[in-house]
Design a protein around this nucleic acid. Sequence first.
DNA 1: ACCTGAACACCGTTCAAGT
DNA 2: ACCTGAACACCGTTCAAGT
Lengths: 202, 202
Amino acid sequence: MEAPSRPYHHGNLRAALLLAGERALESGGVENLSLRELSRELGVSHTSPRRHFADKQALLDALAQHGFERLGATLGRAARGQGTDFESRLTKVGRAYIGFARQHAALLSLMFTAKHRPEAPRALLEASEKALAHTLAIFSEGQAAGVVIPGDPHRLALVVFAALQGLITLSTNGKLKDIPVDKLVGEVIGHLVLGLGPRAIH
Amino acid sequence: MEAPSRPYHHGNLRAALLLAGERALESGGVENLSLRELSRELGVSHTSPRRHFADKQALLDALAQHGFERLGATLGRAARGQGTDFESRLTKVGRAYIGFARQHAALLSLMFTAKHRPEAPRALLEASEKALAHTLAIFSEGQAAGVVIPGDPHRLALVVFAALQGLITLSTNGKLKDIPVDKLVGEVIGHLVLGLGPRAIH
DNA sequence: ACCTGAACACCGTTCAAGT
DNA sequence: ACCTGAACACCGTTCAAGT
């Protein structure tokens, strides 16, 4: 019997740091994530993370990238729901986004700020673009079907996600009281779809 | 001639800290705002701020509150523009908001996070509500005039501001390229106004 | 009342050194 | 290759003490 719990070479330190980092994130925000504390939890010296992440920001970027990969999977599943109309497909994606946001609030916030850093690594940017690919396709297809006004789909999608983001901040801060969030999502998407659609009379 | 530059009692330490704090905020974000560095700049010991702000968060809250007061003044001026229709009044407020956001990006971000803290002081919450009062009135009046659907004006305003916030993050990160932001504001408000309006046919 | 200096318990990062 | 320990330059906060 050897002691596999703390070998000299940790073996999975990189993966372990990401996992512990995500836990720390959810339980205290970026502000309370400390490399030294993660190292303590994992039983390695506080300089060990350096071998795997150049600095703290590199770990945060990796966490954000992983977050985008999971968000992409979540949204992709919701977007691939087949053959319904524009509004209901969009509503499904919206609900999936809200679900992810409520479950991983601190991670989502990190994802946003990491992505918007000027020095953001290419891998992170690629992951963030990939995460929204399926959703953008909904807009393009809506345009092709003539139920969505022309224009850059990114721009249209931005408005929708920005509005959803507003709902999430309200929701996570308890300002919505008894109103179920899913109902609100439907309403908001409804408003926006009407606003994005070609007018019956103008 | 006395030396008014560094008396034993600073005299305006509270105000000086707020001013220096705001400068530090704009030039490096919340992350780079340090009480010790502010104290150094002002030529007082690093424990002096304690007399005026219980801790760092108290200074941040005061900065956020001051920010809401200025935002309120800005939006109020824009909202009081008299006697035009719902959409153009909303567009004016939207442009004013965007202007403030671009000029005080780090401050606005601090304002949001400070306001959403569960332990946010009452004065801060009151300032944030007051800042949006004139804007909310636009929605209420729009409802009274029958050009806006019924519902909690806060909820409607939220969607608009959330969407604007999305534009701002794009803009401050240079993702909008040559498109002038003011033009986009008009488009977005236009979409939303259509979406919020009563349908001609349904 | 208002400010100070020393002390405490933390950080992230660097670097020579160990296995 | 991978990890360590000591060191450096920072933090925010507390507390007894000065004027």
